[in-house]
Design a protein around this nucleic acid. Structure first.
Lengths: 250, 250
DNA sequence: CGTATGCTTGACGCCTTTCAACCGACGTGG
DNA sequence: CCACGTCGGTTGAAAGGCGTCAAGCATACG
């Protein structure tokens, strides 16, 4: 179900950046104080349970969201019931921002989460008056694009082990961005989610995790948590991995 | 080498849209006549040979380009000499537009081509004064993003045959967009290019082409040309396993 | 003509998928 | 309290797709 608009609506306090847009990687730095207050007035903080949808593909894109806490997956449902996972999003990420009038994919939570909902019209009208903001929004889009292309390259030529290693490293990078201490990270998504994302079966994912555990590259202290105990080795797997097939021309 | 700026510079005639931006999928519709003239004054048309670079990853992004004629590939060179091809671009496509100050990837021609070079500063200052234009630019970025994500899903779960079929269909769609008549399309890129794009070896690509030929789904009348003789079957192959590829029979 | 480049085809083997069985955690209802 | 079903995860064995290695052909070019 689509919840974009109700469920525990709660006005944020006056300064938006503290709780919400502050996490949007500097989105608010583009705005003066007055505008920040205006944007805050148009935003609500929602607490949502795991597995609920923030929005669905095809819904009218009337809002954008900041993931404050928790994790989400972006996906397209395939006609045959399978799902293609576009990517995962973490605290501080901006989701649902699009140039079209409908969302291009589903956004579904993989853990309980807190999201901050911003009215899209409000954001856009502000961006029209504020060049730095609109530039920042374009930049966010470009970043997503770069990430998707990176991912594309990554997936294309990597073995199962390399893909999982790369995936774990992006998780790690996301945790570092959010200043989460320690080497243990949350792994709220299922093997099926990971497999759908990486283009592997759950069995393959499971086997790779088992292998990495066996080789001492990671530990799984409890379900939903993983700690990477040999980042260097993981990077080696993620980087120099897979099929050689050099294209000998430069 | 980077050629963005020299080689056969030639002023376009006053009305930009005829030759160049007209092909940018309606970019100019956002501009009034005066602005079009201004933009035209800041643009030059270049004729470049196959294999030359329009720009290189890391170059200062001082210009954006419209591909008027020919085909290009966007790619990232990997440290080990391999290359990951991000995508192919065709006449009417806009390349080199980025929010950053350096190009995120190489753009290399796979055939002789004509490109139209626009000064980036000029474009950006105009977009600041023209909301529809800036919205259109954002939209272009969002389209690229959607395409990349589509591709991501495609690659993740399709077999070699499915990937090639999907690739051929996007080529076909590009040709249709440009109102190219007939079922025969140009296929200027090498098997290696296709393989790097799809995450396959040249042998696999070659075998798939051979199989498709054998099964009567396509013919290759001459090197660099292919005609799809059974679009329905190709769509079935492309769709059967994985992403439903938005375009049904058209 | 000889070389380079792009393409094709065959044989072989590894890696991932497929199919299947099983385990532990959890929640439900009798 | 415990039987039972569900769900997520793990592991094994077999099958097959695609990468790898290798040889050979065609076209273009100096």
């Amino acid at each position: 179900m689509d919840v974009s608009g109700s469920i525990l609506p709660r006005r944020t306090s006056a300064v938006l950046c503290e709780r919400c847009a502050g996490a949007v990687r500097g989105l608010c730095h583009s705005l003066d104080d007055l505008d920040q207050v205006a944007l805050a007035a148009a935003s609500t903080t929602l607490r949502l349970p795991a597995r609920s949808a923030v929005f669905r593909e095809g819904d009218r894109a009337t809002a954008v969201f900041t993931l404050v806490d928790g994790a989400a997956k972006l996906l397209r449902s395939l006609p045959d019931g399978r799902q293609q996972i576009i990517g995962f999003r973490f605290p501080g990420d901006f989701i649902g921002y699009t140039a079209r009038d409908r969302y291009p994919c589903d956004a579904e939570l993989v853990s309980d989460a807190t999201v901050c909902r911003l009215d899209r019209g409000r954001l856009e009208s502000m961006s029209r008056h504020c060049a730095p903001l609109s530039h920042r929004l374009l930049e966010l889009c470009a970043e997503d694009l770069a990430a998707a292309q990176e991912q594309l390259g990554a997936m294309a030529q990597r073995s199962a082990e390399g893909r999982v290693a790369a995936f774990l490293l992006t998780l790690h990078a996301a945790a570092r961005r959010n200043h989460e201490p320690g080497i243990e990270l949350a792994l709220p998504m299922t093997r099926a989610d990971i497999g759908d994302y990486l283009g592997l079966t759950i069995e393959s994912v499971s086997r790779v995790f088992a292998a990495l555990r066996r080789e001492g590259l990671l530990r799984e202290p409890s379900r939903g948590h993983v700690s990477l105990t040999d980042l260097g080795a993981l990077e080696a797997l993620a980087g120099a991995e897979g099929m050689s097939q050099a294209t000998p021309t430069a």
